[in-house]
Amino acid sequence: MTFEATAFYILAVILIWAALKVVTSGNVTHAVFALGLAFVAVAGLFLLAGADFLAAAQVLIYVGAVTTMIVFAIMLSNIGEMDGDDARSTAWRRLGEGLLSPRLGPAPVITAAAFAVFLYTVYSQASWTLAGRAERLAPTTASIGEELFTTFVVPFEIASVVLLVALVGAIVLTQKEERS
């Protein structure tokens, strides 16, 4: 196997294992760290696909900001202790007996499986014109920046407004209520 194939399979196994842990693990804190691992594995896959800028952004934003934010939220409140249905049995027993959701019965597993089958059908029907083995674009930072500030400048500005609104909204939402 080539280096690319070896790295891809290792990263894919790590990614799917970590995603499984996020969904099935009994402890929210463990799930958050598994989520961080999954994000790192996705960043590795981005690197393999030649998206170097995105790999760096993925590590900075997802691992550095989102995961840390969830960890802080768990530490600042007692969310971790009030896990409800989670801390009951081990992951694999949960996966077996927990295929039935406490809310929706067997609907989640049926939906997920149906969606996977749907994706398989779409992918097997679709026809793409693959570009031949073109050399990678990397480093991509310059071309991403160029396109972002020329062709995609309007979506870019809208995205910054969305970010601003979200952050102001988060601050307003977490303020302590004043007694009136």
Binding site: L15, I16, A19, L20, V22, V23, V28, A31, V32, L35, A38, I70, A73, I74, I79, D83, G84, D85, D86, G98, S101, P102, R103, L104, A107, P108, V109, T111, A112, A113, F115, A116, L119, Y120, Y123
Partner: peptide, 23 residues
């Protein structure tokens, strides 16, 4: 596709709001 199906399953089946966010 596997990753998406796992996330969909988690978002539908967990009842913990943080876990749904992670999915």
């Amino acid at each position: 596709a596997i990753l998406f199906a796992l996330g969909l399953y988690g978002a539908l089946m967990r009842t913990n709001a943080i876990r749904i966010l992670m999915s």
